[in-house]
Each structure stands twice: as structure tokens, then as C-alpha cells.
Amino acid sequence: MSDHEQEAALVRSALKGHSDDGGAIGAFVGTGEITEELFPALDSAAARLEDQGDHEEARKVAAVITYAMEARGRGPVPGWAT
């Protein structure tokens, strides 16, 4: 499994159930594209999980934020969703 395939699998796992139906999170999960809209969407998801007391899921989303910040501005990744 290539690095981007491993990254994609980790992102999909961490964001399972947090997609925003065609929004920035959905685009990221589906294509690997990182847009500026992604960060507030992930931040909102993490905050909602914290408010719900789901600290483990919030931690996973926070880890995705860190990953996305490191790859900021990246366009769609060929083969990301496979």
C-alpha cells in the first residue's frame, strides 16, 4: 500500500460519519483535496464531538486537522479514493 493510500484510509476512518454531504469534508474524504473551507468544517466537527463528550472521536478529527495543515493547499490526489 502506498503512502497516499495509507493516508487516505486513515482519513476516511477518522472522518467516517462526519462527512458534510458535498462540502469540504466530503471533498477531502473523496478526493484528498485540501481547501481553506476544510479547516473550519473540521474544527466544527471536532467541537461538536467534544460538546457531545466523544473525546476519542474529537481527537481523531483533530489529528486530521494537523495532517491537513501539513498538506495545506493540496489539490485532488489521483487514486485517493481507491
Score class of each variant (00 low, 15 high):
residue 2 S to H: 03
residue 2 S to N: 07
residue 2 S to R: 01
residue 3 D to C: 05
residue 3 D to W: 11
residue 3 D to P: 05
residue 3 D to Y: 11
residue 4 H to G: 02
residue 4 H to N: 05
residue 4 H to S: 11
residue 5 E to F: 04
residue 5 E to L: 09
residue 7 E to Q: 13
residue 7 E to Y: 03
residue 7 E to H: 13
residue 8 A to P: 01
residue 9 A to L: 08
residue 9 A to Y: 01
residue 9 A to S: 08
residue 10 L to R: 15
residue 10 L to E: 15
residue 11 V to Y: 10
residue 11 V to C: 12
residue 12 R to N: 13
residue 14 A to G: 08
residue 15 L to S: 08
residue 17 G to Q: 08
residue 18 H to K: 14
residue 20 D to H: 08
residue 21 D to H: 13
residue 21 D to E: 14
residue 22 G to A: 07
residue 22 G to H: 11
residue 23 G to M: 09
residue 25 I to H: 04
residue 25 I to G: 07
residue 25 I to Y: 00
residue 25 I to E: 07
residue 26 G to I: 05
residue 26 G to Y: 08
residue 27 A to L: 14
residue 29 V to D: 10
residue 29 V to G: 00
residue 30 G to N: 15
residue 30 G to Y: 00
residue 31 T to A: 09
residue 31 T to V: 06
residue 31 T to M: 09
residue 32 G to K: 02
residue 33 E to L: 10
residue 34 I to E: 05
residue 36 E to N: 12
residue 36 E to K: 13
residue 36 E to G: 13
residue 38 L to H: 03
residue 38 L to K: 03
residue 38 L to P: 04
residue 39 F to D: 10
residue 42 L to C: 08
residue 43 D to M: 10
residue 43 D to I: 01
residue 43 D to R: 13
residue 44 S to R: 11
residue 44 S to F: 09
residue 44 S to Q: 13
residue 45 A to C: 09
residue 45 A to I: 12
residue 45 A to Y: 03
residue 45 A to L: 10
residue 46 A to S: 11
residue 47 A to H: 09
residue 47 A to R: 14
residue 47 A to F: 03
residue 48 R to F: 00
residue 48 R to V: 04
residue 49 L to W: 09
residue 49 L to E: 08
residue 50 E to P: 01
residue 52 Q to F: 05
residue 53 G to T: 06
residue 53 G to V: 03
residue 55 H to N: 13
residue 55 H to T: 11
residue 55 H to E: 14
residue 56 E to N: 11
residue 58 A to R: 06
residue 58 A to Y: 06
residue 58 A to G: 02
residue 58 A to N: 06
residue 59 R to Y: 09
residue 59 R to D: 12
residue 60 K to V: 01
residue 60 K to T: 02
residue 60 K to M: 07
residue 60 K to I: 01
residue 60 K to Y: 08
residue 61 V to N: 03
residue 61 V to R: 00
residue 61 V to E: 01
residue 62 A to D: 14
residue 62 A to P: 02
residue 63 A to W: 03
residue 64 V to P: 00
residue 65 I to Q: 15
residue 65 I to T: 12
residue 67 Y to I: 05
residue 67 Y to L: 10
residue 68 A to H: 05
residue 68 A to M: 02
residue 70 E to Y: 05
residue 71 A to N: 14
residue 72 R to I: 10
residue 72 R to E: 06
residue 73 G to C: 01
residue 73 G to Q: 11
residue 74 R to F: 04
residue 76 P to E: 15
residue 76 P to F: 07
residue 76 P to S: 14
residue 77 V to F: 05
residue 77 V to L: 08
residue 78 P to K: 12
residue 78 P to E: 04
residue 81 A to Y: 12
residue 81 A to R: 13
residue 82 T to I: 11
residue 82 T to F: 04
